[in-house]
Amino acid sequence: MKLLIVEDEKTLSDSVIKYLGKDYLCEQAFTFHEAVEKSEMYEYDCILLDLMLPDGNGLDILSHIKNNSPQAGIIIISAKDSVNDKVEGLKLGADDYIAKPFSLPELSMRIYALIRRKNFANNNITKAGNITIDLLSRTVTVADKKIELTKTEFELLFFLVENKNKVISKSSMAEHLSGDMADMMDNYNFVYAHIKNLKAKLMSAGAGDYIKTLYGSGYKWDEK
């Protein structure tokens, strides 16, 4: 899976690579010029695109890339967070939109979801340990036994599995569940309650104890 990160802020681009580097073949472009060149020369599965580049208008870049690599999924990374910008970007052919400041687990999740959507035929089932997750029907089975999860629990499970072996902060989890509303709360204890329920359901169905809690403030999907 090839990923192109178009972002003029090098530190941010590097951080993304450091987090995603094991799962994807990542390349960087720091300018409009570079982005156009690379998208003409290579094929990418997904392109992360910051619309505010020093040497070009964001929307031009989008249409350029769309022409050069129609097969690539495009996720806009933007400092502007408004419905209008979002609608505008999606209208021009972007597939998803993530506003700064985002967390790496969230970004990773979005990339995965997008790539899966692009070639959905072969990739609807995700396995994690002895758990099988069917993304199309949104069902979870443990050793052929279906378990009933609430929508929130399903979201949490999928988020953890998608960031396998990575530590996810409670705050990223909260943000994933409730979007903008999470950071209005003064604590993320509601995440803990849902994790507890999810853990109990998985355990009683005979799944391994994969969800590790780190000092009460982080979580990790660990199959070891």
């Binding site: 802020e9 941010l12 951080s15 967070d81 700064k100 790496l104 687990p105 780190l214 403030s217 982080g218």
Partner: peptide
Amino acid sequence: LQTPLAIVKCKMDLLMQENLNSKQFILVS
């Protein structure tokens, strides 16, 4: 401010991946 904030957040995500002890982890959180 959005971009610097995004950088800090991403760096914190990376920092969390290092094997931190409980004191360090709670500070980072």
